[in-house]
């Protein structure tokens, strides 16, 4: 069968979500952010909630999430997305409110905001990208940087005596009464992408059922700042990040 005979509208099985804009993402080639953006857009499209979803973008690489997912967006100050999301959800209880944050934003400067929003059980969705490094500012140590990992501010590797330990904030979040669903996923292969999509969908459904805060960590690769190719970075992530940040549901009630 000729390719031309296959490429016909009736044979279409997958195309770019209509909730994504046509703007080319500024992310580096192979960046996990792009996959997660796509999944969020697809879930919003499949649930038919484009008109009811309000996003809050962080400071960091995902600051420009608002250029790529065609919903209403608020761009928060560094670490404060859960505060914006709290007010938005309280003032519009029937909307879906998604805070999208990176590890520096959520697990360092914004620890107070994320802990308290989760502890209050705000009916919001938090998507947490953990790539163990500050991406936008050029590869400095993040709270989640692994011991021994070289970054711009730990050029000889992270040392516990100098830099403290990597923070498993998701495990802390899971202990808070206000959270209903806390999971850790990844997006480096088709199977993991499908699981992450299910997790994002579940989180949004929880929000509609007012079950509390849903928190989806996505262990991600930052190949540029890890100084690897995208394919090498995904492999390095599997070998080094997953043992310390094990995948799976930590809490689901």
């Amino acid at each position: 069968m000729d390719v031309k005979d296959i490429i016909k509208p009736e044979n279409l099985v997958y195309s770019k979500s209509k909730v994504l804009t046509d703007t080319i993402m500024h992310y580096c080639p192979g960046c996990s952010h792009g996959v997660v953006h796509k999944l969020l857009a697809e879930v919003i499209e499949e649930m038919g909630i484009q008109d009811k979803t309000i996003g809050v973008s962080p400071v960091g690489c995902a600051v420009f999430a608002y250029k790529y997912i065609n919903i209403d967006w608020q761009q928060a100050a560094h670490g404060r997305a859960p505060a914006l999301a709290t007010a938005t959800k309280r003032l519009y209880p029937d909307k879906y409110v998604v805070a999208y944050q990176g590890d520096g934003d959520l697990a360092s400067i914004g620890t107070a905001e994320i802990m308290h929003a989760c502890n209050r059980g705000e009916n919001i969705v938090v998507i947490f990208i953990n790539n163990a490094i500050y991406g936008m500012t050029g590869g400095q140590m993040a709270p989640t940087t692994l011991l021994g990992m070289k970054t711009a501010t730990t050029p000889y590797g992270r040392r516990a005596d100098l830099n403290g330990y990597p923070l498993k904030i998701t495990e802390l979040i899971a202990q808070l009464e206000g959270t209903c669903y806390v999971t850790r996923q990844s997006v480096q292969n088709p199977g993991s992408v499908r699981k992450t999509k299910k997790a994002i969908r579940k989180a949004l459904e929880n929000s509609a059922q007012k079950k509390g805060t849903s928190f989806v960590e996505i262990v991600s690769a930052c190949n540029s700042n890890w100084k690897m190719t995208p394919v090498q970075a995904n492999k390095w992530m599997e070998e080094n990040m997953f043992p310390f940040y094990p995948l799976g549901d930590i809490k689901d009630r």
Binding site: G30, G34, V187
Partner: peptide, 18 residues
């Protein structure tokens, strides 16, 4: 199978199947 499109960070792949 669509695996390529599933993992593509930039949503550049459209998949057809018969």
């Amino acid at each position: 199978c669509g695996n390529c499109a599933t993992v593509c960070p930039d949503s550049v792949i459209t998949v057809y199947r018969v």
